[in-house]
């Protein structure tokens, strides 16, 4: 009875968080699902997005949501650069080397940030941080609602763009068969760089949207690293929209599941789901078509 009474609030909380998870999942889906690069640094990228937003907000007094307009393009550029400098060199090597390289990158990024900002927990406050929307017994924190709306918008926009633009076609062609795409006149190297940059930009955007509702510390990305793979796997590997849905599903599962297993085991839910899906439904929950 108590469970049912609290269910609506938990569904809403989960859904709002799910918006951010969707962005995180979509970002990794581009890199891992589509480009087949196992990126262990995705969580660290989110962290970098959070700290970028934090700096813009505390030093330049830029509203975190406006900061998104700087953070995402900046991380896009950094992502392309990282692709050219590092990732490309292991794109054709074994997955193991990709894992180890990106793991090293993650360790380096986390500790670089710690060197600059210390390990202190930090957060930002805005004039609307405390604002709350009430719908009957359900309450929604305004920054959460804004973050959710923006995240959903970005995810849908990305999906539309991938399905209808020239680049989207080139990306899908490259993902299916880079050799054939190359022969058809696609600049494969460029497409791959852009895809990696986009993945990092989405991680950065998720970070920017999380900043007003979360807090930051150098290892915060670890909360999202393995989870982002769960989202991609839930969504059926190659599908960007699937991974976004996977993100929402995971957030809902955590939010509702913690009513049963408690807050401290909620992360275990995602990992167990991850293993079950891989073992029993490797095509993901939402089919296996490529976006």
């Amino acid at each position: 009875m108590e469970f049912l009474a609290q269910l609506p609030q938990n569904l809403v909380s989960g859904l709002l968080l799910g918006g951010m998870y969707a962005l995180i999942g979509a970002g990794l889906a581009l890199v891992f699902g589509v480009m087949d690069i196992v990126n262990m640094a995705h969580g660290a990228f989110i962290m970098v997005g959070m700290y970028t937003t934090f700096v813009l907000c505390t030093r330049l007094r830029l509203d975190p949501y406006l900061g998104l307009l700087v953070t995402a393009p900046l991380l896009f550029g950094v992502g392309m650069l990282l692709h050219r400098l590092l990732i490309e060199r292991v794109a054709h090597a074994s997955h193991m080397n990709q894992i180890l390289l990106t793991l090293g990158l993650s360790v380096a990024l986390v500790n670089l940030v710690q060197l600059i900002f210390t390990a202190n927990y930090q957060q930002i406050r805005t004039s609307y941080s405390d604002a709350v929307i009430r719908l009957g017994s359900i309450t929604m924190n305004v920054p959460y609602v804004i973050s959710f709306a923006l995240a959903t918008g970005i995810t849908l926009g990305l999906y539309y763009w991938l399905m209808h633009s020239e680049f989207g076609r080139a990306l899908r062609a490259t993902a299916q068969d880079p050799m054939a795409a190359q022969l058809m006149g696609v600049n494969v190297r460029r497409v791959q760089s852009v895809a990696f940059g986009l993945g990092m930009a989405l991680a950065g955007a998720a970070g920017a949207l999380l900043t007003p509702v979360y807090y930051l510390y150098p290892t915060v990305g670890a909360n999202f690293g393995l989870k982002s793979f769960t989202m991609v796997v839930l969504g059926g590997m190659g599908s960007v929209v699937g991974a976004a849905l996977g993100g929402v599903t995971l957030a809902l599962a955590e939010s509702v599941g913690q009513m049963l297993v408690g807050h401290e085991l909620k992360d275990a839910i995602g990992f167990v789901v991850f293993l079950l899906v891989l073992l029993f439904k490797p095509a993901g929950l939402f089919g296996g078509q490529r976006a």
């Binding site: 292991v90 380096a108 986390v110 670089l112």
Partner: peptide
């Protein structure tokens, strides 16, 4: 002091890139 874990990450990257 503070930089040693950073070096650890960079070492791992260099190893994978130049002597896998």
């Amino acid at each position: 002091q503070q930089a040693h874990l950073l070096i650890y990450g960079l070492l791992l990257m260099l190893t994978i890139l130049f002597m896998p």
